[in-house]
Structure formats: C-alpha cells, structure tokens
C-alpha cells in the first residue's frame, strides 16, 4: 500500500510537470500579450521596458525554466492583475474563502443529495421517486448562474428576505458561525452537485437492492433495517465516493459565476480573468493548483475504495 501511494505521488509529479509544459506553451502561443493596451499602444521603448521588467523578453524556454525554478521555491511570481502583491499571497487570501464556500456546498449537496437519493431508491417508482428525479434533472440542467439570478431577483430584490451577496459582510449569527449572506450562494452552488449525488445514490442503492447477496440476507431472516444499513448502503457507497471524488476539486476551486454574482472575493474568478488578461504567473499557478488537487483527490478516492470494500486491493498485489 505504501509503495503504491509513493508510486502515485511520483506519478503526480510527472503529471504536474506535463501540465506545466503544456499550459506554459499554450498560453504563450495564444495571440495577445499581458501588456497590450486597449486604446492606443505602448511606445516600443515602453513595451521593451515592461517586457524586460517581467522577464518576457527572454526566449520562452528560458522563461519556463526561470518560472519553474522559482516555483520549486514556492515563488510563483507577481500577478499582473495585482502587481502590489504576489501570486502566493493572492491565492492564500482568496482560496480560503473559496474553500469555505466549497466545503459548505459539499455538506449541503451531499447531505441533501444522499438523503434524497436514498429516499427515492427506497420508494422506487413512487411519486417520491418521480419528484426526486424531476428535481435533480432540473438542478443538473439549469446553469447555476441562472439559478443565482432567480434567487437574487426573488429573495433579495422582490422579497428582500436575504442579502444578495457579500459573503460575511451582512448579518451574522452566533458570532460569525452563520451569516445570512451564505444562504443563497451555497444553495445555488449546491444544486448541480446535489443532483449528481442524488442520482448516483439512487442508482447505486437500486442496483445493490437487486443483488443476490441481499436476497440471501433477507432469506436468512436478517431484519430489513439491518439489510439496508449494513449491506445495501455500505455496498452502494463506492459509486458515491466516485462522485465525491470528482466534485471536491470542482467545488473547492470555486465558480466564477457563483463568486462573481454573489460578491464572493474568492479564487474562482481568477481562472477566467487570468486567461483573459494573459496573466501568465497566475494562469500557471491556478492550473498547477487544479492539477495537484485532482491528483490528490483521485489518490484519496482510490484509498477510500479499499476502506469501504476490502475486496479492492491497490498496488497490483495478486490474491493467493
């Protein structure tokens, strides 16, 4: 197991290297540069100065080596969008909020999604099942920025029950334990993953319920409650872990739409603004972060499989 994990970590290093080469090459190949003016161009002399100042006058391969050399020392450079700070400081500051939003969203999405999926599965083909299926389809297909705007128009503008955003800047209860401006973004953000989780859960439970070993357990007189909790739910967890594994990196790296619409000063927007502004240091840092998170999440998911299902063995060891 340890050998397997070390091997995966080593392969993650290679993945990060490959990602860094691809992203660096592509972002430099795209037309337009970070300091192209919108109206009127910089005089050639000024452009040369600014390119020299940021090391962009050197060949691309040399820029790459310089960047990676610094990145290995956790120096990811200066973001062109906020030159008074560093990329590392900017990510530290904004990612904390994004992770907070993401964790709350995960709790809501998985809490409600699993409950709804189980409820639908236990009441298969009933009106409850149809309602969950309809709601989850809606949650999955309507983009979260559309839902966000509906929420704002209804809850903040028309009814004025809740603030339309700000993340922690409005009324907070029990110290800062719960703020009213968390409600709309978390619900809007959680609808799509909630739908995914509910559908995975329902499908897994329905599938396991039909399995031979469940019939056997019932035939042996095991109580229905025990069948469900000990056999059905446990065996249905593997697909759920797969769903969780794909949702975690998505949710904790933020959504430009949710963060932008609900005034959350998180990392999400930088994935888009960095590309639009050709903010090379920030593009590299955000892509490497995503690659790292995906790599770690997949590793943890694989380890989680072995905990849930002892039949799963990692590391290619042959059964005796």
């Amino acid at each position: 197991m340890t050998r397997y994990i070390l091997g995966r970590i080593l392969s993650l290093v290679f993945v990060l290297f490959a990602v860094s080469v691809i992203v660096f090459s592509v972002m430099h190949a795209v037309p337009g540069g970070p300091f192209d003016a919108t109206d009127g161009k910089l005089p050639p002399a000024a452009m040369e100065n600014i390119m020299r100042k940021y090391g962009l006058d050197k060949p691309v391969w040399q820029q790459y080596l310089n960047y990676m050399g610094n990145a290995l020392r956790f120096d990811f450079g200066i973001p062109y969008q906020q030159p008074h700070t560093t990329v590392a400081a900017l990510i530290r500051k904004t990612w904390g909020v994004t992770v907070q939003v993401g964790i709350m969203t995960l709790i809501v999405a998985f809490g409600i999604g699993i409950a709804a999926g189980m409820f639908a599965a236990y009441n298969q083909n009933s009106w409850v099942d149809n309602l969950v299926t309809f709601t989850t389809t809606l949650g999955f297909t309507v983009p979260n920025f559309v839902v966000a705007m509906w929420f704002i128009l209804f809850f903040a503008v028309a009814r004025q029950w809740l603030p339309m955003g700000g993340w922690g800047s409005s009324q907070c209860l029990i110290g800062s334990f719960f703020c009213t401006d968390w409600i709309l973004p978390v619900i809007a953000y959680s609808l799509a993953p909630m739908a995914v989780v509910a559908r995975y859960t329902r499908a897994s439970i329905v599938d396991v319920k039909r399995a031979d070993y469940i019939r056997t357990a019932r035939a042996k007189g095991v109580s229905e409650r025990k069948v469900m909790s000990k056999h059905v739910f446990r065996n249905a967890q593997i697909p759920m872990v797969t769903a969780l594994g794909t949702e975690i990196p998505n949710l904790i790296t933020g959504s430009i739409f949710i963060e932008s619409i609900f005034r959350i000063n998180g990392l999400g927007k930088f994935f888009v603004t960095s590309t639009l502004n050709r903010d090379y240091p920030m593009i590299m840092a955000t892509f490497l972060l995503i690659a790292l998170l995906w790599g770690i999440t997949y590793l943890l998911t694989d380890i989680a499989y072995t905990v849930i299902d002892p039949r799963v063995r990692l590391g290619g060891r042959k059964e005796a």
Partner: peptide, 8 residues
C-alpha cells in the same frame, strides 16, 4: 521602468 500605459 514605469512603462505607464498612457505614455502614448
């Protein structure tokens, strides 16, 4: 060194 964007 300033490379002011309004030098033009």
């Amino acid at each position: 060194d300033t490379a002011w964007d309004f030098t033009w």
